Simulated scan of single mutants.
Amino acid sequence: MSDDIKNFLHQYINLSSDIVSIFEDLVVFTELEPSEFLTKIGEFPNDFFIIKSGIIRSYLLNENGTEATRAFFTAGDITGASSAMMRRMPSEVNYQALTKVTGYKGDFYKFLELTLQYHELSLFYIKTLENAYLKAENIILDVSTLSATERYLDLKKRIPNIDDLITQRNIASYLNISPVQLSRIRKKLINEKLF
Rank of each mutant, 00 (worst) to 15 (best):
S2T: 15
D3M: 14
D4R: 12
I5E: 00
N7D: 09
N7P: 05
N7H: 02
N7C: 05
Q11M: 11
N14A: 11
N14V: 10
L15E: 12
S16Y: 02
S16E: 02
S17Y: 02
S21F: 01
F23W: 05
E24N: 13
D25G: 15
V27H: 02
V27D: 01
V28W: 10
V28P: 07
F29V: 12
F29P: 13
F29L: 12
T30N: 09
L32R: 11
E33H: 14
P34V: 07
P34G: 11
P34L: 04
S35Y: 14
S35L: 13
S35H: 12
E36H: 13
F37M: 10
T39Y: 03
K40G: 02
I41M: 06
G42Y: 07
E43N: 08
P45S: 07
P45Q: 01
N46E: 10
D47F: 09
F48S: 13
F48M: 12
I50D: 08
I50S: 01
I51C: 04
K52M: 03
K52N: 05
S53K: 09
I55R: 00
I55F: 00
R57P: 00
R57Q: 08
R57C: 02
S58Q: 00
L60F: 15
L60S: 09
L61G: 00
N62R: 06
E63P: 06
N64A: 09
G65S: 04
T66L: 10
T66S: 13
R70P: 01
F73E: 08
T74I: 15
T74C: 06
A75M: 05
T79H: 03
S82K: 14
S83M: 12
A84P: 04
M85R: 03
M85Q: 10
M85F: 03
M85I: 03
R87Q: 12
R87W: 04
M89Q: 12
S91H: 03
E92C: 05
N94Y: 09
N94M: 02
N94A: 05
Y95T: 01
T99N: 02
K100F: 06
V101N: 04
Y104L: 01
K105D: 06
F108S: 11
F108Y: 15
Y109E: 03
K110D: 07
E113C: 11
T115K: 11
L121V: 06
L121F: 04
S122Q: 14
F124C: 07
Y125W: 13
Y125F: 15
K127T: 03
T128E: 00
N131D: 13
N131P: 02
L134R: 04
K135T: 06
A136T: 14
I140A: 04
L141H: 09
S144D: 06
T145M: 01
L146I: 05
A148P: 00
A148R: 00
A148T: 00
E150K: 13
L153F: 01
D154I: 09
K156V: 10
K157L: 10
K157H: 10
R158Q: 14
I159H: 04
N161Y: 08
I162L: 08
D163L: 08
D163V: 06
I166H: 07
I166N: 09
T167V: 12
R169T: 15
R169E: 15
A172M: 13
A172I: 13
S173D: 09
L175I: 11
L175D: 09
N176H: 14
V180S: 05
Q181P: 08
S183N: 11
I185P: 04
I185Y: 03
N191Y: 13
E192T: 13
K193P: 06
L194E: 15
L194R: 15
L194G: 08
F195N: 07
